[in-house]
Each structure stands twice: as C-alpha cells, then as structure tokens.
Computed example of a mutant assay.
Amino acid sequence: MNHHQLEKDIQHLEHVISHISAEDRIPLSYWRSRIEFVSGAVRVPAQASRIKRLNAALSALENRQKA
C-alpha cells in the first residue's frame, strides 16, 4: 500500500470510528479487521500512534456492545 492510500485509509477510519455505534448496520468486527489490515502497512510512528488511538476507540465500542 502506498503512503497516500495509507493516509486516506487512516483518515477514513478516524472519521468512521468517531461516528459509529455498536448498533450500526456494519458490525464492529468489520472495522476491527480494517484497522488490523491498515496497521500492517504502517511505516512511521505518527501513523502507528493514530492506529493505536483507533484501536482504543474501537475497543471501547466493543466493550459497550458486550455490556
């Protein structure tokens, strides 16, 4: 994945994760797999930090869904 596509994917995930809930029609497992896929392409620390924040936000949603 090239740098520009990776940035677009991270930006998209940041937007989506900040607007979804556990009750959305697309399951949280889909977003988990997208984050995992993108994290495999991360090349620089700033991107890794953003992915870490996405993971934390999605984990919070997953925990609310289980409760």
Rank of each mutant, 00 (worst) to 15 (best):
N2P: 08
A56C: 06
H19D: 12
N63R: 14
D24N: 07
I10W: 01
I35W: 00
E36Y: 14
L13S: 02
I35T: 01
N63W: 11
I20F: 03
N55D: 12
K66R: 14
E14V: 07
A41L: 13
D24T: 05
V42M: 12
E23L: 13
S29H: 07
I17F: 01
H3D: 06
Y30V: 12
K66C: 06
M1N: 12
V42C: 15
L58E: 05
S49T: 08
H4P: 00
L6V: 08
I26L: 15
N2V: 09
V42H: 06
S18L: 02
Q65E: 11
L13A: 02
Y30W: 12
Y30L: 10
V42F: 05
I35P: 00
H4C: 05
M1G: 15
V38C: 06
A56Y: 02
L28N: 04
R32N: 12
V16L: 07
I51S: 04
G40V: 02
A41S: 08
A67L: 13
R53Y: 08
I26K: 14
H19C: 13
V42G: 08
I10S: 02
E23R: 13
G40F: 03
I17R: 03
L13R: 04
S39F: 01
Q65T: 05
A41P: 01
E36M: 14
S29A: 14
I20V: 07
K8S: 10
R32T: 10
A60M: 09
Q5G: 08
Y30N: 10
E7N: 08
E7I: 02
A56I: 04
S49Q: 15
K8D: 11
I10R: 02
I17Y: 00
G40K: 08
R53M: 11
V16K: 09
I10A: 02
A56Q: 09
V38S: 02
Y30F: 14
G40Y: 02
N55G: 13
L54D: 02
D9E: 14
V42W: 06
A46W: 11
H19L: 15
V16Y: 05
N2T: 09
L61R: 04
R25S: 15
S39P: 00
V38T: 11
F37T: 07
H12I: 09
P45A: 05
A46E: 15
R53L: 14
S21M: 00
Q47T: 05
L6I: 07
M1Y: 10
D24V: 01
R50E: 00
Q47R: 05
L13E: 02
L54W: 03
S21Q: 01
S39R: 06
W31A: 05
L61I: 04
K52S: 15
Q5T: 09
I51C: 04
N55M: 14
A41I: 03
S49D: 15
W31F: 14
S49Y: 06
H15G: 10
R64I: 03
A22K: 05
K66N: 09
K66T: 13
A57F: 01
K8T: 13
Q11H: 11
R50Q: 12
S33D: 15
P45F: 00
V44A: 05
A41V: 04
A60P: 03
L58T: 03
D24W: 03
L61S: 01
I51L: 15
R43I: 13
Y30G: 04
R50A: 09
F37Y: 06
L28A: 01
I26F: 10
